[in-house]
Design a protein around this nucleic acid. Sequence first.
DNA 1: TGCTAAGCGAGACGGTACGTCCCGTCTTAAT
DNA 2: ATTAAGACGGGACGTACCGTCTCGCTTAGCA
Lengths: 222, 222, 222, 222
Amino acid sequence: MAQRAPEEQDKTSGRPRDRSIGEAAISATLEILETDGYFAVSVEAVARRAGTSRPAIYRRWSGRASLALAAVAARLDVPDSPDTGCTLCDLGDSFALFLAAYRTIRPDALSALYAECASDPDLRERYLDTVVAPVRCAVAQTLDRAVARGDLRPETDRGLLLDMVGSLVYYRAMLGQEHLSNDEAVHAIRILLQGAARDYGALLAHSEAMEHAHLHASTESG
Amino acid sequence: MAQRAPEEQDKTSGRPRDRSIGEAAISATLEILETDGYFAVSVEAVARRAGTSRPAIYRRWSGRASLALAAVAARLDVPDSPDTGCTLCDLGDSFALFLAAYRTIRPDALSALYAECASDPDLRERYLDTVVAPVRCAVAQTLDRAVARGDLRPETDRGLLLDMVGSLVYYRAMLGQEHLSNDEAVHAIRILLQGAARDYGALLAHSEAMEHAHLHASTESG
Amino acid sequence: MAQRAPEEQDKTSGRPRDRSIGEAAISATLEILETDGYFAVSVEAVARRAGTSRPAIYRRWSGRASLALAAVAARLDVPDSPDTGCTLCDLGDSFALFLAAYRTIRPDALSALYAECASDPDLRERYLDTVVAPVRCAVAQTLDRAVARGDLRPETDRGLLLDMVGSLVYYRAMLGQEHLSNDEAVHAIRILLQGAARDYGALLAHSEAMEHAHLHASTESG
Amino acid sequence: MAQRAPEEQDKTSGRPRDRSIGEAAISATLEILETDGYFAVSVEAVARRAGTSRPAIYRRWSGRASLALAAVAARLDVPDSPDTGCTLCDLGDSFALFLAAYRTIRPDALSALYAECASDPDLRERYLDTVVAPVRCAVAQTLDRAVARGDLRPETDRGLLLDMVGSLVYYRAMLGQEHLSNDEAVHAIRILLQGAARDYGALLAHSEAMEHAHLHASTESG
DNA sequence: TGCTAAGCGAGACGGTACGTCCCGTCTTAAT
DNA sequence: ATTAAGACGGGACGTACCGTCTCGCTTAGCA
């Protein structure tokens, strides 16, 4: 009762699905989501706006939540984890990527969508995989590399640190009137790494050197 | 279109409102919330379980969200901010209080409730005041005292630190399968204060001393 | 699963039914019936054209057949049986009344409606009562009076005679491209009464005398 | 959009149509018609029961009505008009033949089928040709012979008389709980011919003589 | 024998209409 | 004036079935 996503059509016989309907439905959903919020999204309304019929929607998704999730997933650019060699920079870039991704989605849509997904295990998993995981995953890789470089204290609970980064973004993405700003992100990273890094000063120095190198590179290439 | 809370009845004439109906409705709402989750809460269901009629509910609240919010508010014990004189202990206690408070509410109920409140400015404000503010407020006082004692670095962004604490609790309260554990809370505080404290070692020492004093006190009184 | 007709609302409490919706539905049904035929009548289409919703229709009728039957019943003027004292005239008038009544309804609507009613005993009975019975009844009274006057041969099967009159009208009303004409009706009556009357010549004479009387009356009063 | 009957395949190339599919479909239709009535007939149901697919049906008929009509046509034995030389007997035999033919078809099927055919001119014509015409035609021939013999009054409207006979059978075949009985048919003929015959007594006498001859013949041959 | 065209079963398609649920409102009678 | 009762008008639901279409294969008849 959850996915039935368009991409899953591997059937050998039968009339092939009209791809444009699925796309129109996703577009319509995103429009409604942006214009009137999650609760204005209904299979009925989406079908109407997409110029199609309810059954055509139900053939592709199991209901409102599944549809909205697909729409949000289509909107979310899943960012690749940055790898500059500098833990501080990577973390900053990770934050920036998340923020960029979530900024395309109305804050309340996320909470409403999650709320509706929460009661269905399948859907909940898809939500976490689609919306939460990419963010966590990118940060996780960054942290893994930091660990590999020996930048973090050995006793640091990586999972918790992950949550502390992720939760901050989410908190604002879901509850906030506005998303986290870049300045706030930089500040938060400082606090977290001052607490978690083996030698924050060294990281900072490295970062600044990188920045200079980058500036030089930019200057030279420019 | 939002509150119409029971306490607002100032009418001078006519049959007075039966106060027990409001109470029964709140109880019924809490029961349904715990048993079957937020989406099982409907004015219909609450009226039925409270042994009253739908219009009687609508006379007191504007709808499901308003009603559920009132119920959650009734459930949440707003904790007083602890003041032990030790920043580390205070922060730990603050965490513990929030966790205790939120633990009485199903994680998904919070996100669903917020989602529904988000579209109505009045309701949204009430939600933030009722559910979010107490947590933030208690931590804020703790942080203020820490600042007053000179325990934090001067450049620390107190608001951001506040969000980092609050968001962690919320993140887990709303998204998590389970709420934050005490161990995780302790660990998180360590990271945050190692980052934000002027001298984390001193705070730690103070805390341990307090703990010993407390242990002695307990021992002596026991 | 059949009637639930608007007139049956005797409830003591609760919001009273909006009478105009029922009327609009009947009107809409009649319009569709006339314009596009029985098969274009659907609860959906009627609700749309009546500017209301499907449930509002279902609250009043059990479905398409029931609704269409009510509409046809509203259209059919149930004629009073004529009583001129002249069997020939009465029968002629009866025919004319039926024809006038059925002429307001598309021939194919009757057969389609009956076809759909036939499978539901309740509905079938209502159909017979509403559409068929009035016609039969009026003729039956005419024949009864003829019998009372001694105008018919004693061995005549009154029920069969009734069917022979009714069937002729129905046959044309349901199957025919066009309804029975007045001339055909007069001719049919002659055939039937020549066969069934004790003394057809006397009836004819009587009828002509009546006609003259009527003409004189008309002349005198005119 | 109406017939597309199996016999119309004149294509010169390509795989020829599998004749057995058409036959299986007709059989399946008749079975469903008898067992569950007209409304249980659907292209889907027929295809399933005939062990074939929906498109295969649609290749042969335009839809349910067309299919059902073909099935009914296959069932109806078109009776030859009897010619005994006796008007009364011929008419009685004609009635009997119709009744026998229609008795093989559920009364409600006729009205439902006609109702559905009525909206499509092509189909309507086919219905009249297939179901109605044979009956009318056989009676018409009987009446023609009666006219030729001088048995009917010259002023009799032959078409109307035709309708009076046909309508009576139809009326009962379509509307009735049960078909017309033989006794009723005899009685109806008496009424009609008493009205339409030049000399009913002579016809009656002739008929009785025939009957005797027939009895004798039967006796002799038996 | 190989090609071609139309047949075939299978099954999903797009869409209409269905009959139902539940929401939030309104009316009535009674307290 | 407010209560409990309960029906109201209506938005949306999820489903059944319609008639169509696409597929991959089969099957004749023409070349």
